[in-house]
């Protein structure tokens, strides 16, 4: 998966670093001072690096958790996100990470205990009110679970705090560690989907929909709450037909009683990210269709977005109650 491993000097002897490196015996391990030395260099090419991605084991300094973007929530008033990883092992052409980072190196922060401490403190500051913490904004939450043991560690350390809700967002099928744990009703395992044709065209390296559904089936049988994330909605010629087919596929496996929430929102992107992505992939069809640029955001346009959300909402209401639907308008 990773041909080269970089390790920050500060975490060379961290027990988690040593454990993770056991998975990479024989690979080249290179010490660096700070992950920013690799991630922030301007003269590098995300697209080329995706061919042989590298992993950086690092220490997260400074703020560990941040307020979730305005307009993104799944039912709580207090929403935060955190990133134990930067960048993703998958290569989805619509992903904002291509526009945000200069490098395709995946960064894994090994100081989980610091994240956990900050999450606890933030939850305590809201007393008994539910606080949602989202993981998987800057990288897939479960894709590296066999070597990172991220979910296992965080769930075990946070589950005894009554007002914490944790979302693990993923496109992965790496659910073995979750299946081995006692289900936590306040941990939502949220899977992202696009219709099969779109997934094949744009989600490179992502497990097939049926494989992800198999993973969901195992989780729901075990009692884990499931989230569905239909975000981004991609506008295509037969939009309604494609997404209707996807919903049929999903709800043929997923028990609606196990679904905690479904969020959905149209593809949109900060203009500077979009420009960079277009520069990386000038021949990508997704970027070749007409898009609107307004207030620094590239999108399908307010009216088309509204149509897409309405269509999706109507289709979803054929299966589920409205209270679990959360359109993303951020």
């Amino acid at each position: 998966m990773f041909s080269t491993i970089y390790v920050e000097e500060a975490v060379c002897d961290h027990p988690r670093t040593r454990k993770i490196l056991q998975h990479f015996r024989g690979r080249t391990v290179i010490e660096c001072r700070h992950y920013g030395e690799l991630l922030n260099l301007k003269a590098q090419n995300f697209r080329l690096q995706k061919k042989q991605p590298a992993l950086i084991l690092a220490e997260k300094q400074g703020k560990k958790i941040l307020p979730a973007p305005a307009g993104y929530h799944i039912g709580a008033r207090h929403n935060y996100y955190f990133s134990h990883m930067l960048n993703c092992i998958y290569d989805c052409r619509y992903c904002f990470l291509q526009g945000m980072y200069q490098s395709a190196c995946s960064v894994l922060f090994v100081n989980y205990e610091d994240f956990i401490h900050h999450i606890r403190q933030q939850a305590l500051s809201h007393h008994d009110e539910a606080v949602h913490f989202f993981s998987g904004y800057d990288g897939d939450s479960l894709a590296l679970e066999p070597l990172s043991l991220f979910a296992e560690t965080f769930i075990n350390d946070l589950r005894n705090i009554s007002n914490i809700w944790l979302e693990l967002r993923t496109k992965s099928t790496q659910v073995r560690s979750l299946l081995a744990l006692e289900p936590w009703p306040q941990c939502i395992v949220a899977f992202s989907f696009t219709p099969e044709d779109i997934s094949k065209a744009l989600e490179h390296g992502v497990p097939a929909i049926q494989q992800r559904l198999n993973a969901i089936d195992k989780l729901q049988q075990r009692g884990w709450p499931i989230g569905l994330r239909l975000d981004p909605l991609i506008d295509i010629e037969d939009f309604e037909q494609q997404y209707r087919g996807l919903l049929q596929q999903l709800f043929s496996v997923i028990n609606i009683d196990n679904i905690h929430s479904i969020s959905f929102g149209a593809f949109r992107m900060p203009e500077n990210f979009y420009n960079r992505m277009t520069g990386l992939y000038p021949k990508e069809r997704l970027f070749a269709f007409n898009m609107e640029r307004h207030d620094g955001i590239v999108s399908y346009g307010e009216s088309r977005e509204q149509d897409m959300r309405n269509t999706m909402r109507e289709m979803l209401l054929e299966y589920v109650r409205p209270s679990i639907l959360f359109p993303c308008v951020a």
Partner: peptide
């Protein structure tokens, strides 16, 4: 100052 030429090949 350090440079880390990616090892892609």
């Amino acid at each position: 100052h350090r440079y880390y030429p990616p090892q892609l090949v």
